[in-house]
Simulated scan of single mutants.
Amino acid sequence: MLRLPDFDEQIDRRGTHSAKWDTMEKYYGVAASDGIAMWVADMDFRPPPCVQQAVERMAAHGVYGYFGDDRTNSDAIRWWMKTRHGWDVASEAIFTTHGLVNGTALCVDAFTAPGDGVVLMTPVYHAFARIIRSAGREVVECRLRIEEGRYVLDIAGWDAQMTGRERMLMLCSPHNPGGRVWTCDELREIAAFCKRHDLILVADEIHHDLVMPGARHTVMPLAAPEIADRLVMMTATTKTFNIAGAHVGNVIIPDEPLRERFRARMNAHGISPNSFGMAMATAAYSPEGAAWVDRLVAYLDGNRKLFDDGVNTIPGLRSMPLEATYLAWVDFGGAGMEPAEFTARVEKQAKIAVNHGASFGAGGDSFLRFNLATPRATVIEAVERLKEAFRDLQ
């Protein structure tokens, strides 16, 4: 019998080497003693019991040697993708990386050369640009447009930007930080854009299990099977089950020539799996894990509604409709303030550590990103602090 998760439980993460709680004063000047951490994209919840039990079994065994024979992990991945996403994955297409930031770096290394352009649909997950620039590649920012309060594509504008030096597009699907679930038609437009400009398409779908009621996510291989020869898929248990510290991710490549190029770079970097991460991921991709995720999404949906209802009552602030992820993207552009002022109010007055919109690239300056994967009482407290910090606007 599945033990019901208690997402309302307040778990004190301070002093546990938590990046989210123990470094927020260093980066944002918000003390953990009376501040609220709503920046790093991990959850303040325990994973499902099946994951904890997998770790406990390893600890009970007491020998922590090299990991070998990944068939059970591969089978779990294939089962999850088929039952949750309707996607048939071949076992030989699966690579295990040290998380998807590592997977992103390996893709940049495998499929581009120094000086090449890598296309980002901005604003978008900030680690992409950091990795691309650190690798000596050029970030090509193709800005998303906002229509009726949410992001849409601007394919015609992006076509005009291309110079022929671009070799790859990094897609965030569902979109972080905007929370968009791209439609099949939009995904096909992106696929056609990549084919037209001869781009490798790397689809980061790390949030594809965290889709709000009423929205429907389609994995890219099903939306645009015609681009299988240029498609790299990235998925993971880490966001879904709150096991980011396990540093384990799936890079799934349908095309054999692309697989060989990726395998060569993995071998060159000496990548091998983390035993604890493999055990946790295998346990997570299971019927028990699926039932836990369903309850998690229902809880996150409640947090989303509560947060949006509160923030959207503050004149000049608008939370973008969240279709997926647990990351609220709030536009302060109508408040009549420069970013430094509204950010200071959030951090110094409300004492909430959040991600700055500018770090997500072009189009993000007027935004802040809030992590809602925390007990509901914390979300309620954060909303009240924001109302107080912007009381003069009301």
Rank of each mutant, 00 (worst) to 15 (best):
268 A>C: 08
322 L>P: 00
265 R>Y: 10
280 M>A: 15
285 Y>T: 08
333 G>R: 05
334 G>A: 06
269 H>I: 04
298 A>Q: 14
311 V>T: 02
264 A>C: 12
302 G>R: 12
304 R>G: 02
306 L>D: 01
291 A>W: 14
324 A>D: 03
289 G>S: 07
314 I>N: 02
301 D>H: 15
348 K>Y: 05
310 G>N: 07
341 E>C: 10
257 P>I: 09
314 I>L: 07
310 G>E: 10
347 E>L: 06
272 S>L: 11
287 P>I: 06
275 S>K: 13
295 R>F: 05
333 G>S: 08
330 V>F: 01
301 D>A: 14
277 G>N: 09
267 N>V: 13
328 A>Y: 00
263 R>A: 13
264 A>L: 10
339 P>H: 02
338 E>P: 05
330 V>N: 02
319 S>E: 06
308 D>Q: 12
339 P>T: 10
329 W>C: 05
327 L>S: 08
273 P>K: 03
322 L>C: 08
314 I>C: 06
301 D>C: 13
254 P>D: 13
336 G>L: 02
334 G>K: 06
258 L>Y: 15
311 V>M: 09
267 N>C: 14
336 G>N: 12
273 P>E: 01
349 Q>E: 11
284 A>Q: 02
260 E>A: 15
299 Y>F: 08
260 E>L: 13
332 F>Q: 01
315 P>L: 10
331 D>A: 09
256 E>A: 15
348 K>E: 12
321 P>N: 04
264 A>G: 14
304 R>K: 14
259 R>H: 11
257 P>D: 12
256 E>R: 15
331 D>W: 11
334 G>I: 10
309 D>Q: 13
314 I>F: 01
271 I>K: 05
307 F>I: 00
308 D>S: 12
297 V>F: 07
261 R>W: 13
267 N>D: 15
269 H>N: 12
272 S>R: 15
320 M>G: 02
277 G>L: 05
282 T>K: 05
306 L>T: 08
291 A>L: 10
298 A>M: 11
303 N>V: 03
308 D>N: 10
328 A>D: 00
310 G>W: 03
349 Q>N: 13
275 S>E: 14
281 A>H: 08
295 R>D: 10
254 P>V: 12
265 R>I: 13
328 A>F: 04
347 E>A: 09
273 P>W: 02
299 Y>H: 01
